[in-house]
Amino acid sequence: MNDDLIELYQEVIMEHNRNPRNYGVLANANREASGFNPLCGDKIHLKLHIAADNTITAVMFEGSGCAISIASASLLTEILHRKTVAEAYTLFEQFHELLTGHPSDIPLGKLAVFAGVNAFPARVKCATLAWHTLKAALLNNNVIVSTETGHE
């Protein structure tokens, strides 16, 4: 099989697509946002609970979409647990850099599995949808986020 494809559809991504973590509705959420890419049809609804000390104590999501978008949302919920809001913003920036910038040695842990998306410009929007939705939730933005521009 093609190397780029192996990089894109890594086992970790496939496994999170099959068994998304933290999937469902968070009961005590105090932040939430929706993301929707109409061309792909990818949909994410994210709910968070942020404690008084600005740490993220719980994150859950619901949604449907391609393997990349679901795995990205699932891994996002895992990695955000117990991070501060400031750390979440930093992760957002670093994740973006990983996907669209030059390969770097940013210590992104598990998120590094998305490095392969870099070679698939058309799929970057799938991987970033959950993260842009997160940003909207942190900012308390009441708009539906999209990472698509232009038309099909």
Partner: peptide
Amino acid sequence: IHAHDVGTILNHYGVAVRAGH
């Protein structure tokens, strides 16, 4: 399997199909 995942993989074998609505 989402159509866009299929489309991406097909493209890697030189096959151009439409994936979308």
